[in-house]
């Protein structure tokens, strides 16, 4: 017998269940307990760049909205810098780049306000098109799902994006593109996520 490798094994994932709000967004569960809940302000008041709103719905394999989902967003600032000690560069004071998003319990619609991120350096000197990383948990989702939201007005950068280009099936790439629209002067991106079925969203093993 060879020696044993002494690595530990990652703790297995379990579903967040239907009551994820109690822990991560107690106000939505119906009670007030913390001085401040985390994740409600992604960009902060000092963030530079274009203020945008992102909206969508998560749809299951039967075509029904998923009403008990929670998403987390992780993004760079408008200069393409992540608020993290390993990422070179500075972010604006109060910019965290992370947020939590929960759905309306009746409709399944969700939305969040932020700034549009800038392009981020990829591997081997490439550049990645502006994107927001999303992590999706819910009852019935055993391991959180990772996807990326890209922007419809970045067609050139998207066409060169090394991650989008990893997706062999070109017709599936459009599932990652949020559609830009102007609503009474506010910039809104629509990003619907399909867990299963026609136009199933591309999910990543990161």
């Amino acid at each position: 017998m060879p020696q044993k490798l002494d690595y530990l094994k990652e703790t297995p994932s379990q579903t967040a269940g239907p009551y994820v709000h109690i822990g991560l967004a107690p106000g939505a569960a119906g009670f007030d307990i913390y001085r401040q809940e985390l994740g409600w302000d992604i960009a902060g008041p000092n963030a530079e760049g274009e203020r945008i709103r992102v909206e969508g719905i998560v749809i299951d394999g039967t075509g029904s909205p998923v009403k008990d989902v929670m998403l987390e967003a992780w993004q760079a600032n408008s200069k393409g810098v992540y608020a993290h000690p390993e990422h070179p560069g500075e972010v604006e004071e109060g910019f965290r780049g992370w947020g939590r998003v929960i759905t309306d319990f009746e409709t399944g619609e969700w939305g969040f306000d932020t700034v549009k991120p800038g392009p981020v350096p990829g591997r081997s000197g490439t550049m990645m098109a502006p994107h927001i990383n999303l992590w999706i948990v819910a009852r019935g989702i055993n391991v959180g799902l990772n996807t990326r939201l890209y922007f419809s007005d970045e067609a050139e950068a998207n066409a060169a994006d090394p991650v989008i280009n990893l997706i062999e099936w070109e017709n599936r790439r459009q599932t990652l593109i949020a559609r830009r629209m102007d609503r009474d002067g506010q910039i809104v991106y629509r990003f619907d996520i399909r867990l299963q079925g026609e136009n199933e969203t591309v999910f990543f093993d990161i």
Binding site: G61, Y82, H84, W98, G197, F203
Partner: peptide, 24 residues
């Protein structure tokens, strides 16, 4: 899980700055 599970395989992604960073 039956109607909430993706049918297609996950796309395997080598880590970039987007994955090796996270909120502090």
């Amino acid at each position: 899980s039956v109607s909430r599970s993706p049918k297609y395989s996950l796309i395997s992604l080598e880590n970039t700055a987007s994955e090796i960073t996270g909120p502090v």
